[in-house]
Write a protein that binds this DNA or RNA. Structure first.
Length: 291
DNA sequence: GGTAGACCTGGACGC
DNA sequence: GCGTCCAGGTCTACC
């Protein structure tokens, strides 16, 4: 079956797909030209569906591998709209960035939307798995979680969705640590899943929050395994760009660009992008760095 | 508020 | 093949 979803213009699907590395992590996938995004998700009714998204005039066309009830279709449409940020408006940022050569492609390519997972829970788990490791380590850990705990697609059990909070809450911590090779992150992920599954933690409510960014950041920092970098990354996924995700790569890039390669810290990174105000995280993210 | 050490894994390197 | 060192953020204890 197919769905058509409208997108606020301007919209360029491959800019969303290439917005960061999520597309390289299971169960995301894409073709080499980034014209199509694939994903597998478990919807609330318990069905596991594989979807493929292509850009079409005015929005996106979503191909679903199996028929769905109208309720499930509605849920799926809402999740895809969230993942692609279909309704997001970056006109204010484009206006501010119009005189900056290093952000010249932002408006041209409708950049700004950052690819999200279907749930905040999934994005928090992914983000924790990016910390204190290499990108190949992140890919390995995410693959292990999907392989070990993801719900299989009925038509092809080899293909699995990202595990939901109930599935990870029921997982064995030592198995996560040893077989999943999550190491010290295993108890963080397990505790997060248990709190989300019990209802103590309503991560999905953050999608519709109207909290000021500092308050939202405080809540994110209360999650075990989420520090300054992870919180800033999650804030951007939530549509708040006032903080910069400062990791070792950021320090290197900003040092080369603004500080002649001298050793710098978080404060220098923030100072370099302070003029972008509420858009500073996005300006940093979309900046065309000098190699 | 700032700092040091521990956490865990994979990869690079030397032997 | 084995051992050692290092990189990658966050947590905890301490000052």
């Amino acid at each position: 079956m197919e769905l058509f979803l409208p997108a606020r213009q301007p919209f360029v699907l491959d800019s969303v797909i290439q917005s960061h590395g999520w597309v390289q992590l299971l169960p995301f996938g894409s073709d080499e030209q980034y014209t199509s995004l694939s994903y597998v998700l478990e919807i609330d009714a318990g069905d596991v569906v594989a979807i493929s998204v292509q850009e079409t005039p005015g929005g996106v066309r979503v191909q679903v591998d199996s028929p769905l009830s109208s309720v499930a279709q509605s849920e799926l449409a809402g999740k895809i709209a969230w993942m692609l940020g279909l309704d997001m408006d970056f006109s204010s940022f484009y206006s501010q960035a119009s005189g900056e050569p290093k952000l010249a492609t932002a408006a041209q390519r409708a950049r700004g939307r950052i690819l999200r997972s279907a749930t905040i829970f999934e994005d928090v788990v992914r983000t924790i798995l990016t910390t204190n490791t290499t990108w190949s380590g992140t890919k390995r850990m995410v693959k292990a979680l999907v392989d070990m705990y993801g719900a299989p697609l009925a038509s092809n059990p080899e293909i699995k969705a990202f595990p939901t909070s109930p599935r990870l809450a029921a997982a064995d911590v030592e198995k996560l640590r040893k077989e999943g090779k999550l190491g010290y992150r295993a108890p963080y992920i397990h505790e997060l899943a248990q709190r989300a599954d019990s209802g103590e933690l309503d991560l999905e409510a953050l999608k519709a929050n109207s909290l000021p960014t500092p308050e939202l950041r405080k809540r994110l920092l209360m999650l075990k395994g989420v520090g300054d970098y992870a919180a800033a990354n999650l804030l951007m996924l939530l549509g708040h760009y006032d903080f910069i995700p400062v990791d070792s790569w950021a320090l290197k890039m900003v040092s080369n660009e603004f500080y002649s390669g001298n050793p710098i810290g978080r404060k220098e990174v923030e100072a370099a992008f302070e003029r972008w105000g509420e858009w500073q995280g996005l300006a940093f993210w979309l900046w065309e760095w000098t190699e």
